[in-house]
Simulated scan of single mutants.
Amino acid sequence: MAVEVKELLEAGVHFGHLTRKWDPNMAPYVYMERNGIHIINLYKTAAKIEEAGNALAKIASSGRKILFVATKKQAKDIVAEKAGAIDMPYITERWPGGMLTNFVTIRKAVKKMASIDRMKKDGTFMTLSKKERLQVDRLRAKLEKNLGSISDMTRLPGALFVVDIKREHIAIKEAQKLNIPIFAMVDTNSDPRQVDYVIPANDDASKSIDKILSHVTSAIAEGLAERKAEKEGSDSDEAPKKAKKAAKKAVTSEEEE
Score class of each variant (00 low, 15 high):
5 V>C: 04
5 V>W: 02
6 K>C: 11
8 L>R: 01
9 L>P: 04
11 A>T: 05
17 H>T: 09
21 K>S: 05
23 D>I: 09
23 D>F: 14
29 Y>L: 11
33 E>H: 15
37 I>N: 14
38 H>M: 03
42 L>N: 06
42 L>K: 12
46 A>T: 11
46 A>G: 09
49 I>E: 07
49 I>D: 10
53 G>D: 00
54 N>E: 14
57 A>S: 09
58 K>R: 09
58 K>C: 00
60 A>S: 03
64 R>F: 04
66 I>V: 13
70 A>Y: 01
75 A>I: 14
79 V>I: 13
79 V>E: 10
81 E>V: 08
82 K>Y: 10
82 K>M: 13
87 D>P: 01
93 E>Y: 10
95 W>G: 06
98 G>K: 09
102 N>I: 04
107 R>I: 07
108 K>P: 03
109 A>K: 11
112 K>R: 10
113 M>V: 02
115 S>P: 03
121 K>E: 14
130 K>D: 12
133 R>S: 11
136 V>G: 00
146 N>E: 13
147 L>F: 13
162 V>K: 02
167 R>P: 00
169 H>C: 06
170 I>F: 10
171 A>Q: 07
178 L>R: 09
178 L>W: 07
181 P>I: 06
183 F>G: 02
184 A>L: 11
188 T>N: 12
193 R>C: 00
197 Y>F: 15
200 P>M: 13
207 K>I: 00
210 D>I: 08
213 L>H: 11
217 T>A: 03
219 A>Q: 08
221 A>C: 01
224 L>G: 08
234 S>D: 01
235 D>N: 01
237 D>S: 13
237 D>Y: 12
241 K>W: 12
242 K>G: 06
244 K>E: 13
244 K>P: 03
249 K>I: 05
253 S>C: 06
254 E>Y: 15
